[in-house]
């Protein structure tokens, strides 16, 4: 007995999942499944790939072709699957550490190729699985177990990074704005090219506790109060935008897609025969 969506798209015998109480990942994983449902994709033709970390446990629960790889390498594995079998809808679920630290090189190159993979980053601003070390998206001056005196690193803006590297669709949502997140994941899947969707999660156990962010509900409220839709932001005076973070669609353009371009090379030789 679970909702139809969960029954249809999840391996319900694997639930409850391993994530902590109040972890935003469960909300976002549901949004991803909802997006797949809304688009009416054939489950047999969807392949979800992940790396290592909290986020990367998601595919184990999702009833598709699923691949849990090595730390940071999800996009490299996914590139192989996609190029080998372009008819598959290949998606990557990754985290801020997995995709922007150890897997940063794969991220920018998958974006550069504009290969038709939809990547959803479950960004919780911390390394959760290893117990709360600062990640490439931990804000400056905040704390992690490896930043006991405050983080002096600057943080990455992952959609901006991916967009600059060549991703043709970039967007950001949050665990609070779950409906909107579903919509941008749908649009990301629909984009024939590399799509990067950042989902801002909440990690009450490590990031929240280390940085005195309050309760689970406080952290959800923070998302609600500090996320500003880019369309709304463009109409607001600067002082009202200051200190907020933007959500919504940042980039949506059409460019040649990698596997299609490769198929053209193959077809050239098949014609010559």
């Amino acid at each position: 007995m679970t909702s139809k969506l969960i029954k249809d798209y999840f391996r319900t015998d694997k639930l409850p999942h391993i994530w902590c109480p109040g972890c935003g990942h469960g909300i976002m994983m549901r949004s991803v499944a909802q997006a797949i449902h809304n688009l009416g994709l054939d489950k047999d033709k969807v392949c979800i790939v992940s790396g290592i970390g909290c986020s990367s446990r998601a595919p184990g629960y999702m009833d598709f072709n699923t691949l849990h790889t090595t730390h940071g390498r999800a996009l490299a594995f996914a590139t192989g699957v996609k190029l080998a079998r372009p008819e598959l809808e290949v998606m990557v679920i990754t985290g801020d550490g997995d995709c922007a630290a150890i897997g940063g090189n794969h991220l920018i190159h998958a974006a550069r190729r504009n290969i038709n993979i939809t990547t959803i980053v479950f960004n919780n601003n911390i390394y959760g699985m290893t117990g709360g070390q600062y990640s490439p998206t931990t804000p400056t001056n905040e704390f992690g177990t490896t930043a006991p005196y405050g983080n002096i690193d600057k943080s990455f803006d992952i959609p901006e990074l991916a967009g600059a590297a060549g991703a043709t669709y970039t967007a950001r949502g949050t665990a609070y704005h779950a409906k909107q997140l579903t919509k941008i994941v749908e649009n990301g899947i629909k984009n024939k090219g590399f799509s990067l969707i950042e989902g801002i999660s909440i990690c009450p156990t490590y990031y929240g506790r280390k940085n005195r962010k309050g309760s689970i509900v406080d952290m959800m409220n923070w998302l609600k109060d500090n996320a500003l839709d880019i369309k709304v932001a463009s109409k607001l005076p600067e002082e009202k935008v200051k200190g907020k973070f933007l959500i919504g669609e940042f980039k949506n353009v059409t460019e040649p897609e990698y596997t299609e371009e490769y198929m053209k090379i193959i077809e050239r030789f098949q014609k010559e025969r």
Partner: peptide, 14 residues
């Protein structure tokens, strides 16, 4: 690293 990762992906895709 990506070279072998992609090859594993290719193999899993058949």
């Amino acid at each position: 690293i990506a070279g072998i990762a992609a090859a594993i992906g290719g193999s899993l895709a058949g």
